[in-house]
Simulated scan of single mutants.
Amino acid sequence: MHTEHLTLTGASHERALEELGAYVVERGYAESEYVDALLEREASYPTGLDIPTAEFGLAIPHADPEYVSEQAVIVGFPEDTLTFQSMDDPDKTVDVDVVILLLVTETEGYTTFLSSLTKLFQDDEFVRLARERDGDALLNLITDRCLDST
């Protein structure tokens, strides 16, 4: 599985998702249709998560696997805080400083991975690395705690 991180320059969550989508298409991890599928899914099923115990927000966007060529976890650090709709209540918004894009080719094992990932969001080390914008260490933590268990 590919694990990479980048800085997002878009001023809106839609633009940030377009950047992430273009990034994975350019690398051959997804087909060009993936970008539209990602935006459509986010509009229908928002992925913003507020982590109140950490006073922190993140988003975990993804699209169906039909346009994914290679599995990847891509962490995006927006230059400025982005506003996403809340996963828990789409009528509310979440200020997001980390976007974790998930690309899966099949759904088997995905639920286990997602469960491990959401538990990790409460971890002090995860929060510290995310706030420090340490993409390499954050991806290593995700790999060690979430990917190796699936």
Rank of each mutant, 00 (worst) to 15 (best):
T3I: 13
T3P: 01
L6H: 07
L8H: 04
G10D: 12
E14T: 14
R15T: 07
A16R: 04
E18G: 10
E18V: 12
E19D: 03
E19R: 00
L20F: 05
L20E: 04
G21S: 08
G21C: 01
Y23V: 10
Y23C: 12
V24C: 08
G28N: 06
G28F: 01
Y29V: 01
Y29D: 10
Y29E: 10
E33F: 10
Y34D: 02
A37R: 09
L38M: 00
E42T: 04
S44L: 14
S44I: 02
S44N: 09
Y45M: 15
P46A: 09
P46F: 15
G48C: 08
G48R: 12
L49T: 03
I51A: 01
P52I: 04
P52A: 07
T53E: 09
T53P: 06
A54G: 05
E55R: 14
F56N: 10
G57V: 08
G57W: 05
A59F: 01
P61E: 03
D64P: 02
E66D: 13
E66Q: 15
S69T: 15
E70W: 07
Q71H: 01
A72D: 05
V75H: 01
G76A: 07
G76D: 12
P78M: 13
D80T: 14
T81A: 15
L82Y: 06
Q85S: 15
Q85E: 14
S86W: 10
S86E: 11
M87P: 05
M87I: 13
M87T: 09
D88G: 12
T93D: 12
T93P: 03
D97H: 11
I100W: 08
L103D: 08
V104N: 04
V104E: 07
V104M: 15
T105S: 08
T105W: 09
T107P: 00
G109V: 06
G109C: 00
Y110V: 13
T111A: 12
T111R: 15
F113M: 00
F113P: 04
S116P: 11
L117H: 08
T118S: 09
E125S: 05
R131C: 02
R133P: 02
R133C: 04
A137P: 00
L139I: 05
N140F: 12
N140P: 02
C146A: 12
S149F: 05
S149T: 14
T150A: 13
